[in-house]
């Protein structure tokens, strides 16, 4: 039985076991590279995507549980080929070593900035807690998130308007 899901604004009919983790559908059926398989246990955050704007571990979320909610992956952040402010901030801060965790980091941080465009250091740290980077790029990641938040202050618009 085909299951319908909406990913990055587009609806897909997926013929798969309803228990299949969303991550497998994103990578294997939809050929999206952004969300990564890290631990498969919701302990590392490499698979983080948005489900109705909230960060979710796609490795733990069964296809059947997605329902009508909108899934956004990092591929869905850029518009007309232009990276969004947070993605650009990660480049500006060179906030990646191996980069395997980065798509998940960006998605989790993006979810924060959408509800709180100007988070403080402590808010960022608490919010990013579920995502791990084993290269140890955390300080650059924090700087990138702050850079994106500060930039929205400088130009005087909310994060949503910069997307």
């Amino acid at each position: 039985m085909a299951i319908s899901i909406k990913v990055n604004g587009k609806t897909h009919e997926i013929d798969a076991d309803p228990a299949t983790p969303l991550l497998y559908i994103l990578r294997d059926e939809l050929a999206l590279n952004g969300a990564k398989f890290g631990c498969g246990l919701g302990q590392c955050g490499a698979c983080t995507v948005h489900v109705d704007g909230k960060p979710a571990f796609s490795c733990l979320l069964p296809l059947a549980a997605v329902g009508n909610r909108e899934v956004t992956t990092i591929e869905g952040l850029a518009s007309n080929g232009k990276l969004n402010a947070l993605q650009q901030a990660f480049i500006d801060e060179q906030a990646a070593q191996c980069g395997y965790c980065i798509a998940g980091m960006v998605m989790r941080a993006e979810a924060l900035l959408r509800v709180n465009p100007h988070p403080g250091e402590e808010e960022i740290r608490a919010h990013m807690q579920p995502n791990l980077c084993r290269c140890g790029t955390h300080m650059r990641i924090l700087r990138a998130i702050k850079r994106a938040a500060d930039r929205s202050t400088e130009i005087g618009v909310g994060h949503e308007e910069r997307l």
């Binding site: 591929e75 480049i91 980069g99 980065i102």
Partner: peptide, 21 residues
């Protein structure tokens, strides 16, 4: 020099062996 591999890694580009199909 900015790392040439980072833009792909923040945008879902093909960056790793497991991205080969």
């Amino acid at each position: 020099l900015q790392r040439v591999d980072i833009p792909g890694k923040v945008s879902g580009g093909a960056a790793y062996v497991q991205d080969m199909r």
